[in-house]
Amino acid sequence: MTEPVSPLSPAGDRHFDGLADKFAASLYGGARGELRLALLDRLLPEMLDLQGQPLLDVGGGLGQLAGWFAGRGHAVTLAEPSAEMLARAREPLQEQNVRFLQAPLQDLPEQAPGPWPLIACHAVLEWLADPRVALALLAGLLAPGGQLSLMVFNRDALRLSNVVKGNLEKALADRLEGKGLRKRLTPISPLTHGQVEAWSAENGLVIREVAGIRVFSDYLRRPPESQAERERLLALEHRYCRVDPHWRLGRYLLYTLERPTHPPQEASE
């Protein structure tokens, strides 16, 4: 029997109603999810100028990122299209300064127009049918001088992972996208660094910082078995996550994008 197809939005995007438990277990449960969150805990203060600005958390999912920012004094608006995911996020965040908004990214220019001094959009664009348009919408929500913390699933790392697993034909054919099947969580639109560079430039955004998230851990022959090994792996990941060429093969790519206060041509006059 074939797996049922996961419902897609009218725009063709992958949402996660009915999949909150699997999403939590697959993307945040276990050593890899723990490492991802630990790296963000270190990198976000290094890569962003944080001064307690109001934050729009786009596609905030289960609320881990919203909780991180709210705990550091930011008033957070968590926007998430999935009612189930939003309900799961409410419980741990009910005592925090977080406003909840059930809305897809495409509706935010009307429902949360800003302009925002700080936006986070982590692991969202890869689940959208048209991530290029999505980045343009995010750019339009940013205030002059505003920062966008963007994290995307890295297509080049996905290719390497398939080669390591022996999926040579799939890698040669460049058939890397997921198909939106209910039980699989391979993104439908994995992105390259070149795409992020080009689309950022199209929208007047400047890449201020970039890092790879999990540049080594996904290729280990065996996962770390002790707390000491996990700590050494975290130290190794943190040391090299912003060093070329290592960052380029992170399973995720983390960016700080900024909308300049003055357009480039105006600044040069």
Rank of each mutant, 00 (worst) to 15 (best):
G212F: 04
Y240S: 02
E209K: 15
R184T: 14
V243E: 15
P187A: 09
L220I: 03
V210G: 00
H238F: 09
R248D: 06
R259I: 06
S200Q: 10
Q195K: 07
D218I: 02
G250R: 01
T192C: 12
L257F: 09
A171W: 09
R184M: 06
L257R: 05
R239P: 00
S200K: 08
L181F: 14
R242H: 08
T256E: 10
R259M: 09
R230Y: 02
G178W: 11
E209T: 05
G204I: 10
T261V: 14
R184D: 14
E177P: 00
T186P: 00
L220G: 03
D174W: 14
L249G: 00
L233P: 02
A198H: 14
S200L: 05
E209Q: 15
A173V: 03
R208L: 13
L236M: 02
W247T: 04
G180M: 04
L205V: 05
S217D: 13
E237A: 03
I213Q: 03
P187H: 10
P263R: 09
L181E: 15
V206I: 11
L249D: 02
A211R: 12
S217Q: 12
A235Q: 11
Y252D: 11
G204D: 11
P190V: 07
A228C: 01
R230F: 01
V215T: 12
V210S: 05
A173Q: 14
R222Y: 07
L205R: 02
L234T: 09
R259A: 10
L249Y: 13
A201T: 10
H262G: 00
H262W: 10
G180Q: 03
E202V: 07
H262M: 12
A211F: 09
R208Y: 01
S226N: 08
F216L: 13
R184A: 15
L233C: 04
T186F: 09
S226C: 10
E237Y: 02
D244A: 13
L205G: 07
R230Q: 14
T186N: 13
Q195R: 11
Q265L: 12
T256F: 01
W247H: 06
F216I: 05
R259Q: 13
E202P: 02
S217M: 03
R259T: 06
A198M: 10
C241W: 00
T186E: 15
E209A: 15
A235V: 05
E231M: 06
G180D: 06
P224T: 08
R251Y: 11
E269Q: 11
R242Q: 15
H193N: 13
L172C: 11
R251D: 03
S200A: 15
H193T: 00
P224R: 05
L249Q: 02
L205W: 01
R222C: 06
S268P: 00
P260T: 03
P260C: 06
L220E: 04
A235G: 04
Q265M: 04
P260W: 02
R182I: 08
S226A: 12
C241I: 07
P264N: 12
E266M: 11
R259N: 02
W247M: 11
Q227K: 12
H262L: 15
L234Q: 03
L172S: 08
R242F: 04
L191Q: 07
S226D: 12
A198F: 05
P190F: 09
Q195V: 05
L257Q: 06
E266V: 13
L220R: 08
